[in-house]
């Protein structure tokens, strides 16, 4: 046996497990993609065969996961700096950057082709555009060059319900774009609240978050402005084809709580926030998770009620 053959059979110290490759797909983000795409698919006014619907959601999720892998490939350098992302497979040394790139590209191609075959070409093309938008426009171009990165990145995360709708109907209408607006306008207050109490992370990585470039006072004002815009669109959706009394009730309560939180964040100064370890900001961040989940849950409830002859106006 030669030295070369011994080396070839010896596994490297950073041998990755299956879970490490799965972690590249950002499973938590994928769960949001699955849920919002499912709501988009079920709220659409076209019946979908259960297996076709399952495949549509699965391949939209795989496309979202592929974007995550490509994002981790590109952002490996800043992921190493930030506490929150240091344990990811690439900065932790368990997976090579090249592997993440190849996995991301392979899954992107697979998900787009399979979604087009399972549903329609329009849905496949829109998924391809979403992956391109998230990886090239957001991750490669704007994330490190503008403090509006979160606003633009939010668009990529807001596309899944639109793709779900197109997968079911093969066409576009106002309702999926209202669902898009819901996630799109929700993203900035959600992430800026996080940036307020995780500031050293983004500072250390040199990512131009609004807190760094325009100051924390401006960030608090921006959170309030986006929350007001979000309230207008989310309440407006109650009177569209995806809305109804259940949605209106849920949305009214959540928007009141969310606006109250944004108002309180706007009124606080840094000393007060640091004194209670950003209690209001942390509470607002947690509420934001519930806000999006319950809004889409209410849209889903309206769709289910409609199938029983109830729901809607």
């Amino acid at each position: 046996m030669t030295d070369a053959s011994i080396n070839a059979s010896t596994p490297r110290e950073t041998e990755a497990g299956f879970g490490d490759y799965f972690a590249l797909l950002k499973p938590r983000v994928m769960s949001l993609v699955v849920f919002t795409a499912l709501v988009g698919l079920l709220a659409a006014p076209a019946p979908v065969h259960p297996i076709v619907g399952f495949c549509a959601i699965l391949f939209i999720a795989v496309g979202g996961g592929a974007s995550g892998a490509l994002n981790m490939w590109w952002d490996a350098d800043i992921d190493q700096v930030m506490k929150r992302t240091r344990g990811r497979p690439i900065p932790a040394g368990r997976v090579d950057r090249g592997e993440a790139l190849h996995l991301g590209l392979a899954l992107s191609g697979l998900s787009v082709i399979m979604l087009a075959l399972a549903t329609n070409i329009f849905a496949g093309a829109f998924l391809a555009f979403t992956i391109f938008f998230y990886v090239v426009i957001y991750t490669m171009w704007l994330k490190r060059s503008t403090p509006q990165n979160i606003v633009i990145g939010g668009a990529a995360g807001a596309f899944p319900p639109v793709i779900g709708w197109i997968a079911a109907t093969g066409s576009m209408s106002v309702e999926p774009w209202l669902m898009f607006a819901l996630t799109f306008l929700w993203t900035p207050p959600h992430f800026w609240a996080l940036a307020l109490f995780m500031r050293s992370d983004y500072d250390d990585a040199g990512v131009p978050m609004l807190t760094v470039t325009h100051g924390r006072r401006a960030t608090r004002t921006h959170i309030l402005v986006y929350t007001v815009l979000l309230a207008v669109f989310s309440l407006g959706a109650a009177f569209s084809g995806i809305g109804g009394p259940v949605y209106l009730t849920v949305s009214a309560v959540l928007n009141l709580l969310f606006l109250r939180g944004a108002w309180r964040i706007r009124g606080r100064d840094e000393a007060a926030s640091e004194a209670d370890n950003f209690k209001i900001e942390r509470g607002f961040f947690k509420l934001s998770l519930l806000y999006l989940f319950l809004h889409f849950g209410a849209i889903l409830a309206e769709a289910v009620l409609k199938s029983y002859g109830l729901g809607g106006w």
Binding site: P11, R12, E15, A16, G17, F18, Y21
Partner: peptide, 15 residues
């Protein structure tokens, strides 16, 4: 069997 071989087996099984 090294721990790394087990991990590799788990990966192959997953794939």
């Amino acid at each position: 069997t090294h721990e790394l071989h087990r991990r590799r087996f788990g990966r192959n099984l997953g794939v």
